[in-house]
Simulated scan of single mutants.
Amino acid sequence: MFHWRADILPGVSAAFTNVDAGNLALHVGDDPAAVQGRRARLEQSIGVAPQSLRFMNQVHGTTVALMDTESAAPEADAMVSRRLPLAVMVADCIPVLLAGESGDGPVLAAVHAGRPGVANGILPAAVERMESLGATRIRAWLGPSICGACYEVPAALRDDVAALVPATRSTTSWDTPALDLPAGARSQLEAVGVDVEYTGACTLETETLYSYRRDRHTGRFAGLVWCHD
């Protein structure tokens, strides 16, 4: 069910699912009841309360939503919370999980960092929101995503994004223009003092992960961050 899972702070865990957990997205034409069933099994497997895991309606924007117990699924590409378990869904974009410490306990974030999000600064925005809640010593875990040797884009698009985030400039393994989103994300996080603790595998090259570039009718796996006793 998990591609990677670890305790990342005292009382805080993070994980990235794989295809064994099944598709976790409601927007890809899957049976909604089946998706909800998989989400329920996922909650049980990580030991959180039923229907407590918060998902986003991801739109490749820069909105960071502050979540509490009454929050419904926001239209956003980042969520920040003190106690609620958070999820981000991807199939080539980067699922980024963040955790920091504060006087009131851990501060968590889950971020959907695709090409527009990296270019427009969704990660620094999420870090800023965490810091507004008193978070310090923030660390990040970058889940599986398409790598800089596989993410082919038109030359003009590479130039546009690299003008904003220079570390994204890349070339595919077959020598065409590409973007390295994990490198761009890492550079943005390091610029605001956040250490990157983990970077996952390439989704396009890993059959046990969903990849939109490999199959346009694919599902979505998830990055998860949650508190536990």
Rank of each mutant, 00 (worst) to 15 (best):
T171L: 11
A162W: 02
R129F: 05
Y151G: 00
S132G: 12
G47W: 11
V19P: 09
R41P: 04
M1I: 06
S52T: 15
V225S: 01
S81F: 06
E75Q: 12
F221V: 04
Y198R: 09
V194E: 04
Q51K: 15
T172N: 12
A109V: 01
H3M: 07
A14M: 01
L86G: 00
G121K: 08
A178Q: 08
D77V: 00
A162K: 00
I46M: 03
C227H: 11
V59C: 13
D159H: 05
T206D: 02
G223W: 10
A78Q: 02
G193L: 07
L224Y: 12
A163D: 13
T208N: 07
V12I: 04
L42D: 00
E70W: 10
P106N: 07
A119M: 14
L204H: 11
V194H: 07
S52K: 11
Y212K: 13
V90W: 09
A185T: 03
D77W: 02
A149D: 08
L133P: 02
S52R: 13
R82M: 05
S132E: 13
L204W: 09
L108W: 09
S132V: 02
L181D: 01
A76M: 01
V196N: 10
D160E: 14
R54D: 05
A140C: 06
V48Y: 10
T203C: 09
V161N: 00
G219V: 00
S145D: 03
G61F: 11
V107S: 01
P166Q: 03
A167S: 14
G22D: 14
R216G: 09
V127G: 11
L133F: 14
Y212N: 07
Q58L: 10
L98P: 04
A191R: 12
L53P: 00
N120K: 13
V90Q: 06
A72L: 09
A140R: 08
I122W: 14
V88A: 01
A222H: 04
D77S: 02
E128C: 11
G184M: 03
D77F: 02
W4R: 14
D7S: 13
D159P: 00
A40H: 15
A65I: 02
A163Y: 07
T62A: 01
I94L: 15
P154N: 09
S13E: 09
G114N: 03
